[in-house]
């Protein structure tokens, strides 16, 4: 088990390397010169040249990548071009906010999506099934920023129940997590419905009923437990989507997380921070998938890792 985890973690290194390579070169294809942005409109050629030297941007791009990698090997993500703070510090300061938002959103989405999917599967093609299906569709078809803005208009401006942005109390997280949850709940509802319909029609479900078990026990203990594998797979995948969605949501709600850090850094052409944050996103995503795979073994006794 421990060996398996170690193996999995080591095997993520090439993936992260791939991400960094793509990212590194793509960033540098963006229009705009970081030195120019940093120096401001009024800077002289001389100033810009100095800044470029300071950032190491005067060297050939492959050399730059080499330097980046050798630092990365020492777990050094460099310093922000904008604030001069170590990137790791910038990321570390915002990571908890993003995690909080993501976890709150995925929890909300599961709390709605899994029961809705189960009810839909137990009563397929009834009004309640259609109701949940259309609610889920509604959630997925609305752009995240638009839904965010609408929620702000209704709950912050008109009703004045909840703050429009920022952090501080539990009230601050309601609207952003709701917005983000709406984005992923559809997938969770659909997969729960589909896999429950499947497991409810299996022979072992009939066996369970033939024992005289209550329908609730048949559904939860016998059918749902078997349906969990596809459900948690999707939840894990959605986590990646959530991180993407966080970029928009955090911007709309002025939520000081990694998503906003990326946006701000892109605007400032702050290469080290962009690189560092996206690498952390990649790592998070990989870790979540590892957790999902470990959960498989916990849920399904047929799956064992050596």
């Amino acid at each position: 088990m421990f060996q398996y985890i170690l193996k999995r973690l080591l095997s993520t290194l090439p993936v992260l390397l791939g991400i960094s390579l793509l990212l590194f070169f793509m960033l540098r294809m963006l229009p705009g010169d970081p030195a120019q942005v940093l120096a401001g409109q009024m800077a002289s050629q001389e100033d810009i040249k100095n800044i470029r030297q300071q950032l190491g941007l005067d060297k050939p791009i492959f050399v730059q990548y080499g330097i980046f990698l050798s630092r990365l090997a020492k777990l050094d993500l460099g310093r922000s071009a904008r604030t001069q703070n170590p990137v790791i510090k910038e990321v570390w300061a915002r990571l908890p906010n993003t995690m909080l938002l993501a976890v709150a959103a995925i929890t909300l989405a599961c709390l709605f999506g899994i029961p809705a999917g189960i009810i839909s599967a137990v009563r397929p093609y009834t009004w309640i099934d259609y109701l949940f299906t259309s609610m889920a569709l509604f959630g997925i078809s609305m752009p995240v920023f638009w839904l965010g803005l609408m929620l702000v208009v209704i709950f912050s401006i008109i009703l004045q129940w909840l703050p429009a942005g920022g952090t501080g109390s539990w009230k601050h997280i309601v609207l952003p997590s709701f917005t983000l949850a709406a984005f992923v709940v559809a997938f969770i509802t659909r997969i729960t419905r589909a896999s429950m319909i499947e497991t409810l029609s299996q022979d072992y479900t009939t066996t369970a009923r033939s024992k005289g078990l209550k329908e609730r026990v048949v559904i939860i203990k016998h059918a749902l437990k078997n349906a969990l594998i596809p459900i948690i797979t999707v939840v894990g995948l959605q986590f990646g989507l959530l991180l993407g969605g966080a970029v928009l949501t955090e911007t709309v709600f002025a939520w000081p997380g990694l998503g906003r850090l990326i946006v701000d850094s892109i605007l400032a052409r702050d290469y080290p921070v962009i690189q560092g944050t996206i690498l952390i996103f990649g790592l998070l995503y990989i870790l979540v998938n590892l957790v999902v795979d470990l959960l498989y073994a916990y849920i399904d006794p047929r799956i064992r890792y050596a």
Partner: peptide, 24 residues
């Protein structure tokens, strides 16, 4: 009928591979 199922009337199915629940 639930009182009767598995109690005074029970059933054995054809497929032993699929009629037991794999996760219990």
């Amino acid at each position: 009928i639930r009182q009767i199922r598995g109690n005074s009337i029970s059933m054995i199915f054809q497929e032993p591979m699929t009629s037991l629940n794999p996760v219990l």
